[in-house]
Design a protein around this nucleic acid. Structure first.
Ligand SMILES: [Mn+2]
Ligand SMILES: [Mn+2]
Ligand SMILES: [Zn+2]
Ligand SMILES: [Zn+2]
Lengths: 139, 139
DNA sequence: TGACCTTTGCAATAGTGTTGCACCGGGTTG
DNA sequence: CAACCCGGTGCAACACTATTGCAAAGGTCA
């Protein structure tokens, strides 16, 4: 049997491609906006909340996805690019949170610049979110 | 009786200077790091949780403080500059969250640049946090 | 088959954010 | 003065998110 693209993508990050993980990855690939745990709960009602939670955690730990903290109160998750390590200042981009439709988007083209931090501050990664109205919700 | 600096600061933002509000503002002025609601609860144990919550909310609504969403899971609050409106791209700066001591700092000198957003996206404000180790916690 | 490890499901809990309502004190008005 | 109004505060309850412990299920391999 052939391995699906998503199975290979999981294995490339050293994640065992279980049924749940493959389904969640497939789902995230389809989405235009970052997903929340609640989104996964809604969409995979047959799977347990905890399993989905730990699936996302696994994705984070293996660098398959990154976490976004917007104003919605719940963390969002989006897939990383192939060789992404989510480290500052490379591999980090701006996000956009629409306060109207509550969607959060990755603007992967918009790399964040390298800021001139005070001495001795050691950056590791970052979270950059612009809030406003998305193209769909714009008045 | 003379009005204290903090009372004037409250009134300049059209906030009625009550005892709790003045105390909280004084406390925030002293802090080097942004404060959380839990911080206020710890420090003002005689005041009710809800009152402190609503105090912060009032500060936000009147532009006296801004809210920062870092990886700690709880929102942080820091005072705004005199004429700050917290609007993108002006009046927005970078923050630093130390994953070791859990403190979040305002780097008011580090203004964020104006990003070239896709068409029709209407920015309003933003949340910019770099995570790492602060000067105190650096190895 | 049986030991072993990983994944999943279920239950419970912690933590944060939020709201409704009642009370209180100060100021206003009749 | 009394009736009233109103913003601020306290208390309780609740919603939602995040997290953990433990046991059952499933897969791998000697
Ligand atoms: Mn992203
Ligand atoms: Mn700040
Ligand atoms: Zn929108
Ligand atoms: Zn630190």
């Amino acid at each position: 049997m052939e391995k699906s693209d998503s199975e290979q993508r999981l294995q490339s990050r050293s994640i065992q491609p279980t049924a749940v993980r493959t389904m969640v990855l497939d789902y995230m690939i389809e989405q235009k906006a970052a997903v929340s745990l609640a989104d996964l709960e809604d969409h995979f009602s047959r799977s347990d909340r905890t399993t989905l939670y730990r699936t996302l955690k696994t994705f984070l730990e293996h660098g398959l996805a990154h976490q976004i903290h917007d104003e919605s109160g719940s963390a969002k998750y989006a897939l990383c690019a192939e060789n992404c390590t989510c480290s500052y200042p490379d591999d980090l981009h701006v996000h956009f949170y629409c306060s109207s439709c509550q969607n959060t988007f990755c603007f992967t083209e918009l790399q964040i610049p390298s800021f001139n931090l005070p001495p001795k501050f050691q950056p590791d990664h970052g979270n950059f979110v612009i809030t406003g109205r998305c193209a769909n919700c714009a008045a």
